[in-house]
């Protein structure tokens, strides 16, 4: 089995594991941290192995890495500090 096949299999396995975890009734912090982790890990796998960013221009790579890092952090922030976000985004 080649490298691309191993990456593909792992991506599929992580997808099924995440969906299974949610379907078995988990919620709250455990699910939030799992989802944030899966977004970060799966995003990096596609960026590094499908898009070959480890060998790409550093500016392009950094933008993609920032995207795959920022979004999971926002998932955690919204879950843990939702009240703050609500206050910050309430008019009047």
């Amino acid at each position: 089995m080649g490298h691309a096949e191993r990456v593909w299999l792992l991506l599929i396995a992580l997808t099924l594991a995440g969906a299974w975890f949610a379907e078995t009734g988990h919620a709250g912090w455990p699910l939030t941290l799992l989802v944030a982790g899966l977004i970060a890990v799966k995003g990096r796998m596609v960026i590094d192995h499908y898009m070959e960013m480890t060998r790409a221009n550093a500016h392009i790579r950094h933008v993609l890495y920032a995207f795959a890092t920022l979004v999971p952090l926002l998932v955690i922030f919204t879950h843990g500090w939702g009240d703050l976000l609500r206050r910050l985004t309430t008019l009047n």
Partner: peptide, 19 residues
């Protein structure tokens, strides 16, 4: 095409997994 993958990997848990 891979970029649409990366974005979907965010959208999918937002609406089908995260509670």
């Amino acid at each position: 095409w891979h970029t649409t993958d990366v974005i979907w990997l965010v959208i999918f848990p937002f609406f089908y997994v995260l509670r």
